[in-house]
C-alpha cells in the first residue's frame, strides 16, 4: 500500500529509451539539464524542449504520468514565475503600488515555467525508464575512477542497493507497528505538536530495534555469501553501449551545440 507508491516511479515497458545503457542515459540527462540552464533565449530552450518531448514520446510511458510528476512542484513553479513576473525590467504594462508587470517580466516568467517543467520532465523520463537498480549500477560504474582517489564508490552503491531493497520492507513494518500500537489505544491523530511527536515514540523505537535486527541478519547473510567489499568483485550484468546509444549521444551533443549557437546568434532574454 504505502510501498506501492514509492516504487511507482519505474514504469516497465519495452521502448528504445528503456533499452538504452543507463550510464549513457544518466550522462545525457545531466547534460540536458546543464544546457537547459545555459540556454539564454527561447530558441535554445526550444531545442531542448523539442528534444525532451521527442524522448518522452519514444519512451512509451503514458503522458498522464509525466503530467502527474509536475504536480508536487506546481507551487514552486507558480511562485518563481510570479516573482519573475513582477521583477522584469523595462516599461510597465500594468502597475499597482510596488507591483509592476513588464513585457520582459512576462517573458521571463514564461521562460522559467518552461525551463522548470522541462527539467522535471527529463528527470521523470530517467526515473520512469530506468529501474532503481540500473540507476545505482550506472552511478557506481560512472564514479568508478573516483575509487582511485579513495572515494568509497562501491560502498556507496552497496548502501543504495540495500536501501532500495529495504525501503518497502521497512514501510510495511511501520504500517504493522502503527496498527499494533493503535490496537493498544495509541492516539496518533489528535493533540498538539508535542503530543504528536510523543505519540511517535512507540512507533520509532520498535522500528529502530527491528532495523538493527535486520541489519545484523543481513550482515551475516552477506558474509556467508563471501562478501568482502568491492575488491575482486564481478558483475553478472555487463553494460553495452549500443548503436542507439551512440546515436542519441551524437544527437544530444548536436542539440547542445545548437543551444550555444542560439545563445550567440539571438539576443538573450533579460
Amino acid at each position: 500500500m504505502i510501498a506501492d507508491i514509492t516504487f511507482g516511479q519505474f514504469f516497465p515497458a519495452k521502448s528504445p529509451i528503456h533499452r538504452m545503457d543507463p550510464r549513457v542515459k544518466l550522462v545525457l540527462v545531466v547534460l540536458m539539464i546543464v544546457f537547459m540552464f545555459l540556454a539564454k533565449n527561447f530558441f535554445g530552450l526550444g531545442v531542448m524542449v523539442a528534444f525532451t518531448v521527442a524522448a518522452m514520446l519514444l519512451s512509451k510511458v503514458p503522458m498522464k504520468l509525466y503530467i502527474k510528476s509536475v504536480k508536487p512542484v506546481l507551487f514552486i513553479i507558480a511562485f518563481t514565475s510570479l516573482i519573475n513576473l513582477f521583477y522584469g525590467s523595462g516599461e510597465p504594462l500594468w502597475q499597482f503600488g510596488f507591483l509592476r508587470i513588464t513585457l520582459n517580466g512576462i517573458f521571463n516568467a514564461l521562460f522559467i515555467v518552461i525551463r522548470i517543467t522541462a527539467l522535471i520532465m527529463i528527470s521523470a523520463l530517467l526515473t520512469f525508464t530506468t529501474s532503481p537498480t540500473q540507476l545505482t549500477d550506472a552511478i557506481e560504474r560512472l564514479l568508478k575512477p573516483l575509487a582511485k582517489l579513495h572515494v568509497p564508490v562501491h560502498e556507496f552503491a552497496m548502501m543504495m542497493t540495500i536501501a532500495l531493497r529495504f525501503i518497502p520492507t521497512l514501510l510495511e513494518e511501520t504500517d504493522k507497528i502503527m496498527s499494533a500500537q493503535k490496537a493498544r489505544g495509541a492516539d496518533l491523530e489528535s493533540g498538539g505538536l508535542i503530543d504528536r511527536v510523543k505519540a511517535l515514540i512507540p512507533i520509532l523505537i520498535p522500528l529502530f530495534v527491528s532495523a538493527f535486527r535486520r541489519a545484523f541478519d543481513l550482515a551475516t547473510a552477506m558474509e556467508c555469501r563471501c562478501y568482502h567489499g568491492g575488491e575482486g568483485r564481478t558483475k553478472m550484468k555487463v553494460l553495452h553501449v549500443s548503436g542507439g546509444d551512440v546515436l542519441s549521444l551524437g544527437l544530444s551533443c548536436l542539440a547542445c551545440a545548437v543551444v550555444i549557437v542560439c545563445n550567440f546568434v539571438f539576443p538573450s532574454l533579460r
Partner: peptide
Amino acid sequence: RFRVGMVFQYPEYQLF
C-alpha cells in the same frame, strides 16, 4: 479497540 483487543503476529516487535 479497548473492548476488542488485538494481538498481532509476532507482537514482541511492538515493545518499546
